[in-house]
Write a protein that binds this DNA or RNA. Structure first.
Lengths: 179, 179
DNA sequence: TTGCTAGTTTAGAACCTTCTAAACGTATTA
DNA sequence: TAATACGTTTAGAAGGTTCTAAACTAGCAA
Protein backbone atom coordinates (compact mmCIF):
# COMPACT_ATOMS: atom_id res chain seq x y z
CA UNK A 1 0.00 0.00 0.00
CA UNK A 2 1.52 3.32 -0.96
CA UNK A 3 1.69 6.41 1.14
CA UNK A 4 -1.36 8.26 -0.17
CA UNK A 5 -3.55 5.25 0.36
CA UNK A 6 -2.29 5.01 3.92
CA UNK A 7 -3.02 8.68 4.46
CA UNK A 8 -6.42 8.26 2.93
CA UNK A 9 -7.14 5.41 5.28
CA UNK A 10 -5.90 7.50 8.21
CA UNK A 11 -8.43 10.21 7.39
CA UNK A 12 -11.24 7.68 7.17
CA UNK A 13 -10.15 6.05 10.43
CA UNK A 14 -10.39 9.43 12.03
CA UNK A 15 -13.77 10.23 10.49
CA UNK A 16 -15.40 6.96 11.45
CA UNK A 17 -13.70 6.87 14.84
CA UNK A 18 -15.26 10.20 15.75
CA UNK A 19 -18.67 9.28 14.39
CA UNK A 20 -18.62 6.00 16.23
CA UNK A 21 -17.59 7.63 19.50
CA UNK A 22 -20.22 10.31 19.04
CA UNK A 23 -22.96 7.79 18.51
CA UNK A 24 -21.95 5.74 21.49
CA UNK A 25 -20.33 2.78 19.80
CA UNK A 26 -16.84 3.67 20.98
CA UNK A 27 -14.00 5.11 18.95
CA UNK A 28 -12.28 1.80 18.36
CA UNK A 29 -15.37 0.32 16.75
CA UNK A 30 -15.48 2.96 14.05
CA UNK A 31 -11.75 2.79 13.55
CA UNK A 32 -11.78 -0.96 13.08
CA UNK A 33 -14.59 -0.65 10.58
CA UNK A 34 -12.65 1.96 8.62
CA UNK A 35 -9.58 -0.28 8.39
CA UNK A 36 -11.65 -3.14 7.05
CA UNK A 37 -13.81 -1.06 4.76
CA UNK A 38 -10.87 0.24 2.78
CA UNK A 39 -9.29 -3.17 2.32
CA UNK A 40 -10.52 -5.27 -0.53
CA UNK A 41 -9.06 -8.36 1.13
CA UNK A 42 -9.96 -9.72 4.54
CA UNK A 43 -7.64 -8.46 7.29
CA UNK A 44 -6.28 -10.55 10.15
CA UNK A 45 -6.91 -9.65 13.76
CA UNK A 46 -3.26 -8.90 14.31
CA UNK A 47 -3.09 -6.58 11.30
CA UNK A 48 -6.08 -4.61 12.53
CA UNK A 49 -4.43 -4.26 15.92
CA UNK A 50 -1.16 -3.12 14.34
CA UNK A 51 -2.88 -0.68 12.05
CA UNK A 52 -4.65 0.94 14.96
CA UNK A 53 -1.71 0.58 17.32
CA UNK A 54 -3.67 -1.22 20.01
CA UNK A 55 -3.38 -4.69 21.53
CA UNK A 56 -4.84 -7.82 19.99
CA UNK A 57 -6.82 -8.28 23.21
CA UNK A 58 -8.55 -4.99 22.67
CA UNK A 59 -9.47 -5.89 19.10
CA UNK A 60 -10.58 -9.37 20.10
CA UNK A 61 -13.12 -7.93 22.51
CA UNK A 62 -14.22 -4.90 20.58
CA UNK A 63 -14.72 -6.51 17.21
CA UNK A 64 -17.26 -8.83 18.67
CA UNK A 65 -19.59 -5.89 18.96
CA UNK A 66 -19.19 -5.12 15.27
CA UNK A 67 -19.89 -8.75 14.41
CA UNK A 68 -23.07 -8.71 16.42
CA UNK A 69 -24.17 -5.60 14.59
CA UNK A 70 -23.51 -7.30 11.28
CA UNK A 71 -20.98 -4.62 10.34
CA UNK A 72 -18.11 -7.07 10.12
CA UNK A 73 -17.79 -10.72 9.14
CA UNK A 74 -15.27 -13.25 10.37
CA UNK A 75 -13.65 -15.58 7.85
CA UNK A 76 -10.90 -18.15 7.58
CA UNK A 77 -8.49 -18.98 4.83
CA UNK A 78 -7.54 -22.45 3.83
CA UNK A 79 -4.13 -23.38 5.17
CA UNK A 80 -3.98 -20.44 7.57
CA UNK A 81 -5.10 -20.69 11.14
CA UNK A 82 -5.61 -17.01 11.65
CA UNK A 83 -9.02 -15.44 11.67
CA UNK A 84 -9.76 -12.69 9.15
CA UNK A 85 -12.35 -9.93 9.12
CA UNK A 86 -14.06 -8.05 6.36
CA UNK A 87 -16.48 -5.18 6.40
CA UNK A 88 -20.10 -5.33 5.42
CA UNK A 89 -20.23 -2.68 2.71
CA UNK A 90 -23.97 -2.29 2.31
CA UNK A 91 -24.80 0.70 4.47
CA UNK A 92 -28.51 0.15 4.21
CA UNK A 93 -28.09 -3.29 5.64
CA UNK A 94 -25.95 -1.91 8.43
CA UNK A 95 -28.50 0.79 9.16
CA UNK A 96 -31.23 -1.82 9.49
CA UNK A 97 -29.13 -3.86 11.80
CA UNK A 98 -27.83 -1.05 13.99
CA UNK A 99 -31.26 0.51 14.33
CA UNK A 100 -32.86 -2.82 15.05
CA UNK A 101 -30.34 -4.07 17.54
CA UNK A 102 -29.21 -0.89 19.25
CA UNK A 103 -31.61 1.97 18.87
CA UNK A 104 -34.98 0.35 18.63
CA UNK A 105 -34.74 -1.54 21.92
CA UNK A 106 -33.70 1.63 23.70
CA UNK A 107 -36.46 3.61 22.05
CA UNK A 108 -39.06 0.99 22.91
CA UNK A 109 -38.00 0.88 26.49
CA UNK A 110 -38.31 4.63 26.90
CA UNK A 111 -41.57 4.67 25.02
CA UNK A 112 -43.07 2.11 27.31
CA UNK A 113 -41.99 4.18 30.31
CA UNK A 114 -43.72 7.18 28.74
CA UNK A 115 -46.87 5.11 28.28
CA UNK A 116 -46.65 3.94 31.86
CA UNK A 117 -46.28 7.54 32.93
CA UNK A 118 -49.46 8.42 31.03
CA UNK A 119 -51.35 5.49 32.51
CA UNK A 120 -50.39 6.48 36.04
CA UNK A 121 -51.35 10.09 35.40
CA UNK A 122 -54.80 8.98 34.27
CA UNK A 123 -55.29 7.31 37.61
CA UNK A 124 -54.60 10.53 39.47
CA UNK A 125 -57.37 12.50 41.08
CA UNK A 126 -59.11 14.95 38.76
CA UNK A 127 -57.42 18.34 38.66
CA UNK A 128 -56.19 20.94 36.22
CA UNK A 129 -52.68 19.71 36.83
CA UNK A 130 -53.66 16.16 35.98
CA UNK A 131 -55.19 17.31 32.74
CA UNK A 132 -52.09 19.22 31.78
CA UNK A 133 -49.82 16.29 32.55
CA UNK A 134 -51.98 13.96 30.47
CA UNK A 135 -51.94 16.42 27.61
CA UNK A 136 -48.19 16.77 27.78
CA UNK A 137 -47.65 13.05 27.79
CA UNK A 138 -49.97 12.63 24.83
CA UNK A 139 -47.90 15.12 22.85
CA UNK A 140 -44.76 13.26 23.71
CA UNK A 141 -46.30 9.93 22.77
CA UNK A 142 -47.35 11.36 19.45
CA UNK A 143 -43.87 12.62 18.79
CA UNK A 144 -42.40 9.23 19.59
CA UNK A 145 -44.85 7.55 17.26
CA UNK A 146 -44.03 9.97 14.48
CA UNK A 147 -40.32 9.24 14.78
CA UNK A 148 -40.96 5.54 14.92
CA UNK A 149 -43.10 5.74 11.82
CA UNK A 150 -40.48 7.76 9.99
CA UNK A 151 -37.76 5.22 10.69
CA UNK A 152 -40.06 2.39 9.67
CA UNK A 153 -41.00 3.95 6.35
CA UNK A 154 -37.46 4.94 5.50
CA UNK A 155 -36.05 1.51 6.25
CA UNK A 156 -38.79 -0.05 4.16
CA UNK A 157 -37.43 1.69 1.08
CA UNK A 158 -34.33 0.99 -0.91
CA UNK A 159 -31.75 3.77 -1.01
CA UNK A 160 -32.78 4.49 -4.59
CA UNK A 161 -36.42 4.83 -3.64
CA UNK A 162 -35.54 7.11 -0.77
CA UNK A 163 -33.44 9.28 -3.01
CA UNK A 164 -36.27 9.61 -5.50
CA UNK A 165 -38.76 10.45 -2.75
CA UNK A 166 -36.50 13.11 -1.30
CA UNK A 167 -36.01 14.74 -4.66
CA UNK A 168 -39.76 14.84 -5.10
CA UNK A 169 -40.23 16.53 -1.76
CA UNK A 170 -37.58 19.07 -2.55
CA UNK A 171 -39.41 19.93 -5.75
CA UNK A 172 -42.70 20.24 -3.91
CA UNK A 173 -41.06 22.38 -1.31
CA UNK A 174 -39.72 24.77 -3.93
CA UNK A 175 -43.10 24.90 -5.63
CA UNK A 176 -44.71 25.83 -2.31
CA UNK A 177 -42.25 28.62 -1.77
CA UNK A 178 -42.85 30.07 -5.18
CA UNK A 179 -46.56 30.35 -4.53
CA UNK B 1 -49.10 17.36 43.72
CA UNK B 2 -50.67 14.03 44.56
CA UNK B 3 -48.98 10.72 44.63
CA UNK B 4 -49.96 9.43 41.21
CA UNK B 5 -48.75 12.58 39.55
CA UNK B 6 -45.45 12.19 41.36
CA UNK B 7 -45.21 8.58 40.22
CA UNK B 8 -46.09 9.61 36.72
CA UNK B 9 -43.34 12.18 36.77
CA UNK B 10 -40.93 9.58 38.14
CA UNK B 11 -41.61 7.33 35.16
CA UNK B 12 -41.04 10.17 32.73
CA UNK B 13 -37.86 11.21 34.51
CA UNK B 14 -36.63 7.70 34.05
CA UNK B 15 -37.67 7.52 30.41
CA UNK B 16 -36.08 10.79 29.40
CA UNK B 17 -33.04 10.22 31.60
CA UNK B 18 -32.26 7.01 29.77
CA UNK B 19 -32.90 8.49 26.34
CA UNK B 20 -30.72 11.45 27.12
CA UNK B 21 -27.90 9.29 28.41
CA UNK B 22 -28.19 7.01 25.40
CA UNK B 23 -27.95 9.90 22.97
CA UNK B 24 -24.97 11.37 24.67
CA UNK B 25 -26.55 14.34 26.44
CA UNK B 26 -26.11 12.90 29.91
CA UNK B 27 -28.74 11.42 32.17
CA UNK B 28 -29.23 14.55 34.22
CA UNK B 29 -30.12 16.60 31.15
CA UNK B 30 -33.04 14.37 30.27
CA UNK B 31 -34.14 14.16 33.87
CA UNK B 32 -34.18 17.92 34.30
CA UNK B 33 -36.18 18.29 31.12
CA UNK B 34 -38.72 15.77 32.34
CA UNK B 35 -39.21 17.63 35.63
CA UNK B 36 -39.85 20.87 33.80
CA UNK B 37 -41.95 19.40 31.03
CA UNK B 38 -44.54 18.05 33.44
CA UNK B 39 -44.87 21.26 35.39
CA UNK B 40 -47.21 23.89 34.02
CA UNK B 41 -45.48 26.52 36.15
CA UNK B 42 -41.84 27.49 35.99
CA UNK B 43 -39.70 25.61 38.50
CA UNK B 44 -36.89 27.10 40.58
CA UNK B 45 -33.35 25.80 40.37
CA UNK B 46 -33.53 24.55 43.93
CA UNK B 47 -36.76 22.65 43.30
CA UNK B 48 -35.27 20.91 40.29
CA UNK B 49 -32.28 19.90 42.39
CA UNK B 50 -34.51 18.60 45.18
CA UNK B 51 -36.75 16.72 42.81
CA UNK B 52 -33.77 14.94 41.27
CA UNK B 53 -31.91 14.62 44.57
CA UNK B 54 -28.75 16.27 43.31
CA UNK B 55 -26.92 19.43 44.30
CA UNK B 56 -27.82 22.90 43.08
CA UNK B 57 -24.28 23.15 41.71
CA UNK B 58 -24.88 20.19 39.46
CA UNK B 59 -28.12 21.68 38.14
CA UNK B 60 -26.55 25.08 37.71
CA UNK B 61 -23.93 23.66 35.38
CA UNK B 62 -25.98 21.06 33.58
CA UNK B 63 -29.03 23.20 32.82
CA UNK B 64 -26.87 25.57 30.87
CA UNK B 65 -26.53 22.93 28.24
CA UNK B 66 -30.29 22.60 27.95
CA UNK B 67 -30.61 26.37 27.65
CA UNK B 68 -28.12 26.43 24.83
CA UNK B 69 -30.07 23.75 23.05
CA UNK B 70 -33.22 25.76 23.42
CA UNK B 71 -34.87 22.98 25.36
CA UNK B 72 -35.29 25.08 28.49
CA UNK B 73 -35.88 28.76 29.17
CA UNK B 74 -34.82 30.77 32.19
CA UNK B 75 -37.30 33.22 33.71
CA UNK B 76 -37.73 35.46 36.72
CA UNK B 77 -40.72 36.36 38.79
CA UNK B 78 -41.45 39.80 40.07
CA UNK B 79 -40.64 40.09 43.74
CA UNK B 80 -38.66 36.86 43.83
CA UNK B 81 -34.94 36.73 43.39
CA UNK B 82 -34.81 33.12 42.40
CA UNK B 83 -34.38 32.02 38.83
CA UNK B 84 -37.01 29.76 37.31
CA UNK B 85 -36.93 27.36 34.39
CA UNK B 86 -39.56 26.10 32.02
CA UNK B 87 -39.44 23.54 29.26
CA UNK B 88 -39.77 24.24 25.59
CA UNK B 89 -42.70 22.00 24.68
CA UNK B 90 -42.50 22.11 20.90
CA UNK B 91 -40.58 18.98 19.99
CA UNK B 92 -40.14 20.01 16.42
CA UNK B 93 -38.44 23.15 17.53
CA UNK B 94 -36.23 21.14 19.84
CA UNK B 95 -35.38 18.71 17.10
CA UNK B 96 -34.30 21.55 14.83
CA UNK B 97 -32.16 23.00 17.53
CA UNK B 98 -30.56 19.78 18.73
CA UNK B 99 -29.83 18.59 15.22
CA UNK B 100 -28.45 21.93 14.22
CA UNK B 101 -26.30 22.56 17.26
CA UNK B 102 -25.20 19.07 18.16
CA UNK B 103 -25.50 16.57 15.40
CA UNK B 104 -24.96 18.58 12.29
CA UNK B 105 -21.55 19.96 13.27
CA UNK B 106 -20.35 16.48 14.13
CA UNK B 107 -21.73 15.08 10.90
CA UNK B 108 -20.14 17.82 8.85
CA UNK B 109 -16.78 17.34 10.45
CA UNK B 110 -16.79 13.64 9.69
CA UNK B 111 -18.07 14.22 6.22
CA UNK B 112 -15.26 16.60 5.45
CA UNK B 113 -12.76 14.03 6.68
CA UNK B 114 -14.35 11.49 4.35
CA UNK B 115 -14.02 13.96 1.48
CA UNK B 116 -10.42 14.58 2.41
CA UNK B 117 -9.86 10.85 2.44
CA UNK B 118 -11.30 10.63 -1.08
CA UNK B 119 -9.16 13.51 -2.30
CA UNK B 120 -5.99 11.95 -0.98
CA UNK B 121 -6.90 8.59 -2.49
CA UNK B 122 -7.27 10.23 -5.90
CA UNK B 123 -3.72 11.47 -5.63
CA UNK B 124 -2.41 7.96 -5.10
CA UNK B 125 -0.59 6.10 -7.87
CA UNK B 126 -2.87 4.23 -10.23
CA UNK B 127 -3.65 0.72 -9.04
CA UNK B 128 -6.54 -1.66 -8.56
CA UNK B 129 -6.39 -0.94 -4.86
CA UNK B 130 -6.66 2.80 -5.46
CA UNK B 131 -9.69 2.28 -7.63
CA UNK B 132 -11.36 0.16 -5.00
CA UNK B 133 -10.66 2.70 -2.26
CA UNK B 134 -12.06 5.52 -4.37
CA UNK B 135 -15.15 3.48 -5.12
CA UNK B 136 -15.66 2.68 -1.47
CA UNK B 137 -15.30 6.28 -0.43
CA UNK B 138 -17.76 7.38 -3.09
CA UNK B 139 -20.34 4.96 -1.72
CA UNK B 140 -19.81 6.32 1.75
CA UNK B 141 -20.07 9.90 0.55
CA UNK B 142 -23.32 9.07 -1.19
CA UNK B 143 -24.72 7.51 1.94
CA UNK B 144 -23.78 10.57 3.97
CA UNK B 145 -25.46 12.83 1.42
CA UNK B 146 -28.59 10.72 1.48
CA UNK B 147 -28.84 10.99 5.25
CA UNK B 148 -28.18 14.70 5.17
CA UNK B 149 -30.87 15.15 2.55
CA UNK B 150 -33.34 13.11 4.56
CA UNK B 151 -32.83 15.21 7.68
CA UNK B 152 -33.10 18.39 5.65
CA UNK B 153 -36.37 17.41 3.99
CA UNK B 154 -37.92 16.15 7.21
CA UNK B 155 -37.03 19.27 9.16
CA UNK B 156 -38.44 21.40 6.38
CA UNK B 157 -41.88 19.93 7.01
CA UNK B 158 -44.28 20.54 9.81
CA UNK B 159 -45.15 17.53 11.97
CA UNK B 160 -48.55 17.39 10.31
CA UNK B 161 -47.03 17.36 6.85
CA UNK B 162 -44.63 14.65 7.84
CA UNK B 163 -47.43 12.57 9.26
CA UNK B 164 -49.42 12.89 6.05
CA UNK B 165 -46.39 12.00 3.94
CA UNK B 166 -45.68 8.92 6.02
CA UNK B 167 -49.24 7.73 5.75
CA UNK B 168 -49.03 8.11 2.00
CA UNK B 169 -45.87 6.04 1.83
CA UNK B 170 -47.40 3.35 3.95
CA UNK B 171 -50.32 3.17 1.54
CA UNK B 172 -48.01 2.98 -1.44
CA UNK B 173 -46.00 0.32 0.29
CA UNK B 174 -49.08 -1.81 0.85
CA UNK B 175 -50.16 -1.31 -2.73
CA UNK B 176 -46.76 -2.50 -3.91
CA UNK B 177 -46.97 -5.61 -1.80
CA UNK B 178 -50.37 -6.49 -3.11
CA UNK B 179 -49.07 -6.43 -6.68
C1' DT C 1 7.09 -33.69 22.78
C1' DT C 2 8.26 -28.99 23.01
C1' DG C 3 7.95 -24.54 21.27
C1' DC C 4 5.53 -21.21 18.85
C1' DT C 5 1.55 -18.70 17.21
C1' DA C 6 -3.05 -16.86 17.37
C1' DG C 7 -6.79 -15.47 19.73
C1' DT C 8 -9.45 -15.17 24.20
C1' DT C 9 -10.19 -13.68 28.76
C1' DT C 10 -9.90 -10.81 32.66
C1' DA C 11 -7.90 -7.99 36.64
C1' DG C 12 -6.60 -3.81 37.14
C1' DA C 13 -4.49 0.54 35.19
C1' DA C 14 -5.52 4.58 32.76
C1' DC C 15 -8.56 7.76 31.12
C1' DC C 16 -12.94 10.18 30.87
C1' DT C 17 -17.37 11.87 32.66
C1' DT C 18 -20.41 13.14 36.26
C1' DC C 19 -21.15 14.79 40.59
C1' DT C 20 -20.25 16.81 45.29
C1' DA C 21 -18.59 20.03 48.66
C1' DA C 22 -17.29 24.19 49.62
C1' DA C 23 -15.72 28.57 48.51
C1' DC C 24 -17.22 32.59 46.21
C1' DG C 25 -20.07 36.52 44.57
C1' DT C 26 -24.30 39.00 44.71
C1' DA C 27 -28.58 40.55 46.37
C1' DT C 28 -32.09 40.73 49.90
C1' DT C 29 -33.72 40.63 54.66
C1' DA C 30 -33.62 41.45 59.55
C1' DT D 1 -24.36 46.04 59.45
C1' DA D 2 -24.60 41.17 59.76
C1' DA D 3 -27.05 37.29 58.42
C1' DT D 4 -29.32 34.78 54.99
C1' DA D 5 -30.55 33.15 50.51
C1' DC D 6 -29.52 32.08 45.79
C1' DG D 7 -26.81 30.73 42.14
C1' DT D 8 -22.03 30.10 40.25
C1' DT D 9 -17.60 28.10 40.06
C1' DT D 10 -14.17 24.70 40.58
C1' DA D 11 -10.97 21.12 42.75
C1' DG D 12 -11.20 16.77 43.50
C1' DA D 13 -14.03 12.53 44.62
C1' DA D 14 -16.73 9.02 42.65
C1' DG D 15 -18.32 6.34 39.03
C1' DG D 16 -18.04 4.60 34.36
C1' DT D 17 -15.52 3.31 30.11
C1' DT D 18 -11.60 1.89 27.51
C1' DC D 19 -7.44 -0.26 27.25
C1' DT D 20 -3.25 -3.04 28.59
C1' DA D 21 -0.65 -6.87 30.32
C1' DA D 22 -0.45 -11.26 31.16
C1' DA D 23 -2.38 -15.62 31.90
C1' DC D 24 -4.84 -19.02 29.45
C1' DT D 25 -6.47 -22.15 25.63
C1' DA D 26 -6.02 -24.35 21.38
C1' DG D 27 -3.84 -25.61 17.29
C1' DC D 28 0.18 -25.97 14.34
C1' DA D 29 5.14 -26.53 13.33
C1' DA D 30 9.67 -28.24 14.36
Amino acid sequence: MNNNLTLSQDALIQALGRQSAFWGLGRTAGEMYAVLYLNSDPVSLEEVAQRLKVTKGNISVAIRQLEQLGMVRRSWQKGDRRVFFEAEVDFWKIAHSVLGLRYKPEFDQSFSLVEESATIAEQAALSAERDMVIERLKSLQEFYRLLDSLVEVVLDMSPGQLKAALEMFKLLSQKDKQG
